[in-house]
Nucleic acid binder design. Structure first.
Lengths: 152, 152
DNA sequence: AAAAATTAAATAGTACACAAGTTAAAATTC
DNA sequence: GAATTTTAACTTGTGTACTATTTAATTTTT
């Protein structure tokens, strides 16, 4: 009769596992990122820009799955602390291009120390982390695909 | 030679995977929770209270890994829409106990339909979801344990 | 080429999250 | 048993996220 697990039990919720793991990462990153003077979402923007500089707000949003409502103020803060500059694209004035400053680029070297510290803190093997990552990305893409199906 | 670099990238990828999967869940839940008239974090509180009513703010926070700075305003909103009541504990006036109203309890029946819909949307098997959940919870607990070691 | 539609950012408003500090009550110490 | 410490919740301030709306620039249609 109670083969049926309690689907509303918190412990059974994959979404709570993702939610709380994501927050745990943020807390773990916080003291490490304090050295750089940035928050976790700001760090994500830097990761994207270190990979390819001069992206538009929209392109950054596509990589991080965030919209301009979130990114505009965030990028303004990064500009205010001198890590990047925001400039309208000459060829298309609707577009704002984000370019790292010298300081923004230089920060990359300091940031190299962060990932190994976090990986060590997870207490997981490389194989486990890889499997977890792949599972999460597949799950995430399925969730988002269904959301878009409905919109379209 | 570039084993090292791959590992560094992985650390960023696993946390971004958790971060973006968590947001994808929130977006997926949104239309489902709109029927209940609550947000995702509010829904988490209801899950906890459906499991055991009359918990203190602190006890809810321990289950959800949230502090009173987050919970107090959230619980006030749930009280404002008539799903619960907040009352000082007679025996210990520091403690605020949260009790579901009749409407708050009744909402559970409606909520039963949500987890299967979300599970289906993940496109993952029950076994996959279970493995993912367990991996995430283990990872999360490792991350938080290290944070506390430093504090203590 | 003027009108209509689309697009990219920005803005306004709501709701988390979290750190730091406050207040009031209870437990501990002396 | 008064003074100190601890505890629980609240409050304040900063920074995401997201919806919906607005503005300005570009495309597309006609």
């Amino acid at each position: 009769m109670s083969d049926e697990i309690d689907r509303l039990a918190l412990a059974n919720q994959i979404c709570f596992a993702a939610y709380s793991a994501s927050h745990a990462f943020a807390r773990r990153y916080k003291p490490l990122l304090a050295v750089l003077g940035v928050t976790y979402p700001q760090y994500l923007c830097l990761l994207v820009l270190w990979e390819r500089d001069g992206l538009s707000v929209k392109e950054i949003g596509q990589r991080l799955l965030l919209d301009s409502g979130t990114l505009t103020p965030l990028l303004k803060r990064l500009e205010a602390i001198g890590l990047l500059v925001r400039r309208r694209d000459r060829a298309d004035e609707r577009v704002v291009r984000i370019s790292l400053t010298e300081r923004g680029r230089a920060l990359r070297a300091t940031a190299e120390a962060i990932p190994p510290a976090v990986m060590q803190a997870t207490g997981c093997s490389v194989a486990e982390l890889g499997a977890l990552r792949d599972g999460l990305l597949a799950l995430r893409d399925n969730l988002l695909a269904e959301v878009e199906d409905e919109a379209g």
